[in-house]
């Protein structure tokens, strides 16, 4: 079976030559949720952006490949790549407050991909979006679709964005810290909603987060990232039962616990960080980017 998403040996650098991704390999099987965890700056969002073809201009892919259902994105022309990404993927963004265009009504923002990219008739797209709004428990679809984004609450906007992401039945959804910007009570609802829609629609999700609590709730597989390098990869249950890498153990120890709040607020141990630095130095020492693919698809 072809993997839904297959990233192999992906390396990326900034324009000053600094490496931000170090030979990252990971795959997401159809219908599977893979969490991508790491502290901020670990490159987890970068991987999401690379998959969706929206890397900032300063980041260049120098090595490796990204395959969406077998199609090598790097080998496609910019136009084909846009079409493939538009047809097969969707994004649930981090901040619902900035992810909707303030000057357009919500309804057209939800249907535009269906109508303009996938070529659906307007009434079919409209019906489909209403159905999804119902699935995310929005009871007044008419009001919401006519509203401008500033007329909706943050949680409401995130529901709208989730509904829009699932509306086109993408094969893969990249969820980029979709609960981070919401307040805690709403976080849980939104997480449950994503999990529920994922099950019903059987969509594969690459779930980018820094929150191990979220990982445990939603994913089947986990990839732990540090400084752009995969340090551990495992089934979620196995990872929590028996973390292999010292960094993973340190991350888990740093997750707040109600029972012992002070002990859990420890920074990652110096020895662990030194070990990580050594691993990265070794990886960089052996690294010779192939020169045939200088430009990434940003």
């Amino acid at each position: 079976m072809t993997a839904c998403l297959d990233i192999s040996n992906l390396s990326a650098t900034l324009s000053n030559g600094q490496r931000v991704l170090r030979s990252v390999s990971l795959s997401v099987e159809p219908g599977e949720v893979r969490a991508l965890v790491g502290e901020s700056g670990a490159g987890k969002s970068m991987i999401g952006k690379a998959v969706l073809g929206v890397l900032p201009p300063s980041v260049k892919i120098v090595e490796g490949s990204i395959r969406l259902e077998g199609a090598d994105l790097g080998a496609l022309s910019a136009k084909e790549r846009r079409r493939v990404i538009g047809a097969k993927t969707a994004l649930i963004p981090q901040d619902p407050l900035t992810a909707l265009n303030p000057s357009r009504r919500v309804g057209p923002q939800m249907t535009d991909r269906l109508v303009h990219i996938l070529g659906w008739a307007a009434d079919r797209a409209d019906k489909r979006v209403r159905q999804l709004l119902d699935e995310v428990h929005i009871r007044e679809p008419d009001r919401v679709m006519r509203a401008y984004p500033h007329e909706l609450s943050g949680g409401m906007r995130q529901r709208v964005l989730i509904a829009a992401a699932f509306a086109a039945e993408p094969r893969l959804i990249v969820a980029d810290e979709p609960t981070t910007a919401l307040d805690v009570t709403v976080q849980k609802q939104i997480l449950r909603l994503i999990a529920q829609l994922q099950k019903e629609h059987g969509t594969a999700i690459l779930f980018v987060t820094h929150d191990l609590g979220v990982v445990a709730k939603i994913s089947q597989k986990v990839t732990v990232l540090y400084a752009g390098k995969v340090v551990e990869e495992a089934d979620t249950a196995a990872l929590f039962a028996d973390p292999q890498h010292a960094y993973t153990r340190a991350l888990m120890a740093a997750t707040p616990k109600y029972t012992d709040p002070l002990a859990s607020l420890m920074p990652v141990d110096e020895a662990v960080l030194a070990g990580l630095a050594a691993e990265i130095a070794i990886a960089d020492h052996d690294w010779r980017p192939s020169l045939d693919r200088k430009s990434g698809h940003g």
């Binding site: 846009r82 079409r83 994004l91 901040d95 900035t98 992810a99 535009d112």
Partner: peptide
């Protein structure tokens, strides 16, 4: 973000 989202949707 909403411009990024539009790019992901497949708009040129």
């Amino acid at each position: 973000d909403y411009v990024t989202l539009a790019r992901v949707k497949g708009f040129s």
